[in-house]
Measured scan of single mutants.
Amino acid sequence: YKPCFVCQDKSSGYHYGVSACEGCKGFFRRSIQKNMIYTCHRDKNCVINKVTRNRCQYCRLQKCFEVGMSKESVRND
């Protein structure tokens, strides 16, 4: 598999339409299922990588959408 499109960590396969790691897969699923609203405490362009991905949930979710993750493919079960 290609590296995670969101944070470049080791991917566990294709999730919600893109190559993603377990961490970003779970983060995206929880964010969508719980209708989470995050805020960025900087200027909405935080670097998201394996080391920084937990620092800003707003920018991490934005990057999930930017790389093509589909909220329609998240099931509500």
Rank of each mutant, 00 (worst) to 15 (best):
C40K: 01
T39K: 13
E66N: 10
Q8D: 13
R42Y: 12
Q33F: 07
N45L: 11
H15E: 07
T52H: 04
C21H: 01
S11T: 06
R42D: 09
F28N: 01
S73Q: 10
I32S: 04
G17V: 04
N54P: 11
D77G: 11
K50S: 15
I37M: 08
I48P: 04
N35L: 06
Q62C: 05
C46K: 00
N49G: 06
N45Y: 04
G68R: 02
K2P: 07
G23T: 11
F5Q: 09
N45I: 12
M69W: 06
C24K: 00
R53T: 11
T52G: 10
Y38Q: 02
K10W: 10
Q57A: 15
N49M: 05
R75G: 13
T39R: 10
N35A: 12
V74W: 07
Q33V: 12
Y38T: 07
K50L: 14
F65T: 10
C40R: 01
K10E: 13
N35H: 04
V18G: 06
V18D: 03
R55C: 14
R55S: 15
V67E: 05
K25E: 12
D77P: 13
F28P: 00
C46A: 01
Q57V: 04
T52F: 06
V74L: 10
P3C: 08
G68F: 06
N76Y: 12
C4Y: 03
F65V: 10
C64N: 00
K50Y: 14
C7T: 04
C56V: 01
E22W: 04
G23R: 04
V47C: 11
T52Y: 00
Y58N: 03
H41C: 07
F28C: 00
R75K: 10
N35I: 02
Q57W: 14
D43A: 12
R30S: 02
V6H: 02
Q57K: 06
R60A: 08
D43T: 11
S19H: 10
K71Q: 11
V51H: 12
I37Q: 14
G13W: 02
K71C: 07
Y58K: 07
I48C: 02
K71F: 06
L61A: 03
V51Y: 11
G13F: 04
R29M: 15
E66V: 10
P3S: 12
F27R: 00
M69Y: 03
R55I: 15
L61E: 03
Y14I: 12
K44A: 11
K2I: 07
D43K: 11
C4E: 03
F27S: 01
N54E: 15
S12G: 06
Y16G: 12
V47R: 09
Y38D: 00
G13I: 05
A20L: 08
M36E: 14
G23Y: 04
V51A: 08
R60L: 15
D77E: 14
T39Q: 13
Q62M: 10
T39M: 13
C4P: 04
S31E: 03
E66F: 10
K71G: 11
Q8R: 06
V47E: 14
K10G: 09
F5P: 13
D9Y: 03
F27V: 00
N76G: 09
P3Y: 15
F65H: 06
F5T: 09
V47F: 08
I32D: 05
Q8Y: 14
Y58M: 06
H15V: 08
I32N: 09
N35T: 12
G26Q: 08
Q62N: 09
Y58E: 06
K71R: 08
P3L: 12
K2M: 09
S70L: 13
M69N: 02
K63E: 03
F65K: 08
N49I: 06
D9A: 04
I32T: 07
K63A: 05
K34E: 15
N54V: 14
T39Y: 11
D9N: 01
P3V: 10
E72A: 08
E66C: 07
Q57F: 13
K44Y: 05
K50P: 13
S31K: 01
Q8K: 11
V74Y: 05
V67N: 03
F28Q: 01
C24D: 04
D9V: 02
R75L: 14
P3E: 14
K44E: 10
K71L: 10
E22S: 06
V74I: 12
M69A: 01
C21K: 00
S31I: 04
I37W: 08
E66S: 09
N45M: 10
D9P: 00
C64E: 01
H41G: 10
N35F: 06
V74M: 10
I37E: 12
V47S: 12
F27K: 01
N35P: 05
K34M: 14
G68N: 05
C64R: 02
H41A: 11
M36R: 09
C59T: 03
V6T: 01
I48Q: 04
C59N: 01
K2L: 07
I37C: 06
F5D: 05
R60C: 07
K10V: 11
Y14S: 09
K71M: 08
T39E: 10
S19G: 06
V67G: 07
Y58D: 07
C7W: 02
S31T: 14
D43Q: 10
M36I: 06
C7M: 02
I37G: 07
G17M: 06
R42T: 10
K2R: 05
D43Y: 08
Y58R: 05
R30H: 07
R30V: 00
F65R: 06
V67F: 09
C59D: 00
G17T: 06
G68K: 04
G23W: 07
Y38V: 04
R29D: 09
E22A: 06
C4R: 01
I37N: 12
S70K: 13
Q62W: 06
Q33L: 13
Y16Q: 10
S73D: 14
C59E: 00
Q57S: 14
D77L: 06
A20C: 13
E22D: 10
N54L: 15
D43L: 09
R30C: 02
K10R: 12
N49L: 06
D77K: 08
C4N: 02
G26I: 09
N49Y: 04
Q57L: 14
C24M: 01
Q62E: 11
I37S: 08
C7R: 01
G26W: 01
R60M: 15
N49H: 04
H15M: 11
G68T: 02
R53F: 13
C56A: 00
N35E: 15
V6N: 01
Y38F: 06
N49T: 11
Y16C: 07
C40S: 01
V51P: 06
V67R: 05
T52R: 02
G13Q: 03
F28W: 07
K71D: 08
R42V: 15
Q57Y: 15
Y38M: 04
